[in-house]
Structures are given as C-alpha cells and as structure tokens.
C-alpha cells in the first residue's frame, strides 16, 4: 500500500543572519491512509516546519515528499496550491476563519478554488459538513458570534468539505478549554473512524497520546526513526 505521506531524508534549513538553522535535519516517515497520528515535540523541535512541509505551504531544502503519490519537489506555487486544495484540510490553533463572512461561506471558500463545483453543490456540501460537526443551525452566524469550540468545528467542517486525503491539524485544541478540547478530540476520533486520515501536530502529551500513533520529534530529528 502506498503511504499517503512519504517523507525521505527531509531537511529544511533557514538562513538567519550568518548562521544556518536546521529546523528539520534528515527526517523520514510515512503516514498511511486512515491513520490518526500525532506529530509531537516541544516548541522549537521542528514540528511546525514539518506541518508546513506536509501541508505544502513550504518546500524542503533537500529530500523528497510524496503526498498521495505526488512528488512535490520543484512544484510552483500554483501546483502546490492545487495539492493543498485537493489533498490537505487544514485546522489551525487560532481557527483562521475569515471574519467578515458567515460560517457557511467560510466552509464554501475552499471549494471556490477547486473549480467545477456548481454553487448549489458547494452550498449543499458545506451544509452537510456543518451538519456533520453539529453546527448546521449556526451556519449563518459570523465567526465572532461563535464560541471557540464552535469556531473550531467550523474550521473542521471547512477542512472536511473538500474531502481531502489528510486533515492536518496544528494544535487544534491550543486555544480551547479542557472540556471543549475533549469534545474536539472526540470529533477527530469519530472522523477518523469514518475513514478520514488525520495528523495532529501538538506539544500536549495528553492530546498526543489520545491519537493512535505518535511521531516524536526533537531538535529536527525523529526520536524513533520511522522504518521506511
């Protein structure tokens, strides 16, 4: 079975002034379909860099990344945007909803960039996704009229709606209280059981341990190298 995410000897160096910061230094790993993994590490470990690379927001200095079989090496911004749109569903710590449009319109937004989806289908799919996260009755509300947990549910609906290969969540509970966090993690669990592949990036042990597999990263390297 081909892995959904295949990383081989990934290095990502940043030039800061005269010195080179090695954010990632030879990381290799795989994530298979229907997995529910946590990418864990303390701050500065390189987990955000890893998430950016998996999410095709960034490209590695060296190494190879395949997303659902597509080699992202040498892709231009337009191709990367295409991969992000079709293959990746992002969930962020700060929700990152567009503030001036309703929950429903937020969920519709990624489908605008897909092309070939009629406006009625976009709406239908968005309503369906919001229904799935339990927010159908609040879909006309603006983000600032929603609680933190509700905002994150909208963000999850937005990630789901394009039927991505993988949902990539960066500290999805970082801005939520414990009770809401549990509810969100429960939602992720259910979504995984429904067949969605989910990767959660977190520094929180409890959150990480509630996922099925943990990939631990420290100082730009995996603690236990994944067997390729």
């Amino acid at each position: 079975m081909t892995p959904l995410i295949y990383m081989q000897d990934i290095c990502r160096y940043y030039v800061v002034g005269d010195s080179i910061v090695k954010a990632l230094d030879g990381v290799s790993m795989k994530v298979y379909k229907k997995e529910f993994v946590a990418i864990m590490g303390p701050s500065g470990s390189g987990k955000s860099t890893m998430m950016n690379l998996i999410g095709c927001l960034d490209t590695p200095t060296s190494g190879k990344i395949l997303i659902d079989g597509d080699d992202t090496q040498g892709m231009d911004e337009t191709r990367l945007a295409y991969i992000r749109n079709r293959r990746i569903g992002f969930v962020f710590q700060q929700f990152n909803l567009l503030g001036k449009i309703s929950a429903l319109e937020n969920v519709i937004t990624p489908m605008l960039y897909t092309g070939g989806i009629s406006s009625s289908e976009r709406r239908e799919r968005a309503e369906h996704a919001l229904e799935r996260v339990g927010l159908k009755e609040r879909m006309k509300h603006l983000p600032n009229e929603l609680s933190g947990g509700q905002k994150q549910r909208v963000a999850i609906a937005r990630a789901l709606v394009t039927r991505p290969s993988i949902i990539l969540a960066d500290e999805p509970t970082g801005a939520l209280d414990t009770k809401t966090s549990d509810q969100i993690m429960e939602l992720f669990n259910e979504l995984n059981e429904e067949g969605n592949t989910i990767a959660i990036v977190t520094h929180n042990e409890e959150i990480g341990n509630s996922c099925r597999r943990q990939i631990r990263i420290r100082d730009g390297k995996l603690e236990e190298p994944d067997v390729l």
Binding site: L57, E77, T78, R86, F90, N96, L98, Y113
Partner: peptide
C-alpha cells in the same frame, strides 16, 4: 495579509 494566508492555505493559487 492574514486573509491572504488563509486563502492560500485553503488552496487559492496566486492567479486567483
């Protein structure tokens, strides 16, 4: 800027 970042993350190509 933030909105542009979000839209890009959601898959908006530079052209759009």
């Amino acid at each position: 800027t933030k909105e542009i970042g979000i839209r890009k993350a959601l898959g908006a190509p530079p052209r759009i």
